[in-house]
Design a protein around this nucleic acid. Structure first.
Lengths: 365, 365
DNA sequence: TTGTATGCGTTATCAG
DNA sequence: CTGATAACGCATACAA
């Protein structure tokens, strides 16, 4: 327990040159035990007497010992590290997911290495390779561009979880979701949204696309289907929009303005919010001139002017769930379950009651 | 170069049980060379003949070899990993910083492990410990709660970069920033903002605080100073606001409403946007009844209604810079430089011309 | 209850 | 140009 030969082994500040890092061996020496005993003591191995355990821990604290994860990983065959592949950290939704994921991982003693895939297959493949090299014990892919099949080829499916995969190959049959994937019931959410619209007298409804992904298709179809099921004869109009039209929807707004629908159901909140702004430039008022519905429930949808009616999804929760799922699988070897999260329609100011509202419809329609 | 004894060593899918991971040794064997040769070949060591280099690489590709980072790190004493400690991944500004940091790191061949400190010293210390264990080659702390001094005690200052540290101990003397820190010229930005306000006839200006951090103080003082320098006699009013008042500024809005200033300079955009919403509930119009200025330049400030006048800072750039700086230091051993980034006043709709505007003032005031 | 010896997968040193 | 061998720091099987 003596504090290092010269008494300045752990001096704070960095006086002269980077001092040699403290090793387990140093702790052992300082506590007058062998390396193995020190190792076991720090791991609270019950075979070590309480006295020496305390003594070793004191020495470790004294010397400011920090175990070397690389060495430990090499020996233990695990890293207590999770990989998170996400399209873009700047996106509010992805930020939520990442936040939930990191928090849950940390709570479980895992650290996470994040890489942004930017929706580019090449980058995503690289990310997966990085995770493999660093021996991530589990990886989550959020909204990946590569196919689930390829993903499962590149990382052990037992340790892989797909969060809101945006790929057509995903068989999104009603309510059935394959193991190892977490998604929200987009169709259900949109059905609620469209019902809300129809209940409030909206008929001429249009859908605004958000890129050509599978998710977009699911959402678009859910809107069309619900509309039909409600007996709305007017065909659903669809405004095409590129993957990042939300960055500047001016043109799109003009197109919409030439023949205004009664309401716009947008691919997501980003797009809806940006569109509201573009529409405002054209002196088109929401909700007076046109109703607006978003998707995601990002924080700013709650304080926009007008506040946005939207289908809110539990993004943070998905991240948390993904991490928790992974950790559980790693620790108890359980198979990754599938999860379908219910979204939540939040009615705010961007939609209103148009005329004598249609009376309550059959909830099962 | 033969494709594995049974031809299914790299078969896709996971047919039966987790197959043993391919090691360098396997590649070597498959290419009929020794381990050392294989290692050197993959590293493009010029001492290895081109022929064998190619052969080894082919074998590696064939077998889908993935090097073990832990083993390599153990041997090489570096991990090609950067640690990023950030308060909250959900925050738009922090998201931008994280995004820039990760992108730049990736470009340089580094991967980043991110942990959210949530502005809690205990968590931040834990994060720093995690970085140490995992042997991060460099770490960046964004807006940390712990003091720069403590940070530099816990991680080699040569490998540490502080991005917008929010601590009073930071000697923010005019224009001088200590090495290893990146920050924006908040005072300069606010001076521009206040000048804009004064130039446009605003006099009764108030500042809305955003927590008790050092950054808040700097901003508040910059506003006060500029106001004085412009000869505005009316004392600067200050509305106190907790660290997360922006989550529900209803009460704050009421307080403000009892005696409306002509303009509000807010700690940041989140607060300004939330406040605009709360004010709207009280039927107070921006900019007709009150002017509004934010800080940060988050994306939604550009599409809010009204669009927010704000002091924009290059958040993504700061992240990129931090990573680039770290990488440079690691690779060429250069000392970390200090950076002071100029913010940018963006005038939008939330401020207007009040009355006969004061004429251009001395730019040096 | 504790100590000794070994190996995790790589790179680097030293021979050849 | 290439191959054997040691070492990186830790945890564990085995011995005491």
């Amino acid at each position: 327990m003596r504090s290092g030969e010269s008494g300045r082994l752990v001096a704070s500040g960095y006086p002269a040159g980077p001092r040699r890092r403290i090793l387990l061996k140093d702790v052992a020496t300082s506590a007058n035990v062998s390396g193995s005993t020190a190792s076991r003591a720090l791991a609270d191995d019950p075979r070590i007497s309480l006295a020496t355990r305390l003594s070793v821990k004191a020495a470790a604290a004294e010397l400011n010992y920090v175990p070397n994860a690389a060495a430990r990983s090499l020996r233990m065959k695990h890293t207590r590290t999770l990989g998170l592949l996400i399209p873009d950290l700047r996106d509010p939704v992805h930020g939520q997911v990442a936040s939930g994921f990191e928090e849950e991982a940390r709570r479980s003693g895992y650290c996470v290495i994040m890489v942004a895939g930017e929706n580019e297959p090449a980058r995503e493949r690289l990310a997966l390779k990085i995770f493999a090299e660093h021996g991530a014990d589990g990886v989550a892919i959020v909204s990946g561009a590569i196919s689930p099949r390829e993903a499962r080829e590149r990382v052990d499916p037992e340790r892989l979880i797909l969060v809101q995969p945006d790929h057509h190959s995903l068989p999104r049959r009603e309510g059935v979701v394959p193991p190892g994937v977490i998604l929200t019931d987009d169709a259900g959410g949109l059905k609620a949204a469209v019902n809300h619209l129809v209940d409030n007298g909206y008929r001429r409804i249009a859908y605004v696309e958000g890129g050509g992904g599978a998710t977009n298709k699911v959402r678009s179809e859910a809107v069309a289907t619900t509309l039909r099921s409600r007996g709305v004869k007017t065909a659903l109009r669809t405004f095409g929009a590129g993957d990042d039209t939300w960055r500047d929807p001016t043109e799109l707004a003009s197109e919409i303005a030439t023949d205004l629908p009664e309401a716009l159901v947008c691919y997501d909140d980003k797009l809806a919010l940006a569109l509201m702004d573009a529409l405002r430039k054209l002196r088109i008022r929401v909700p007076e001139d046109i109703g607006m519905v978003g998707f995601d429930g990002i924080p700013f949808a709650a304080i926009s002017n007008p506040r946005l009616t939207t289908v809110a999804t539990p993004a943070g929760e998905m991240g948390r769930l993904a991490a928790a799922s992974l950790v559980r699988t790693i620790q108890v070897g359980a198979r990754l379950e599938a999860v379908l999260l219910p979204p939540d329609l939040i009615v705010r100011e961007s939609t209103r009651t148009l005329s004598p509202p249609t009376r309550n419809h059959d909830p099962r329609s």
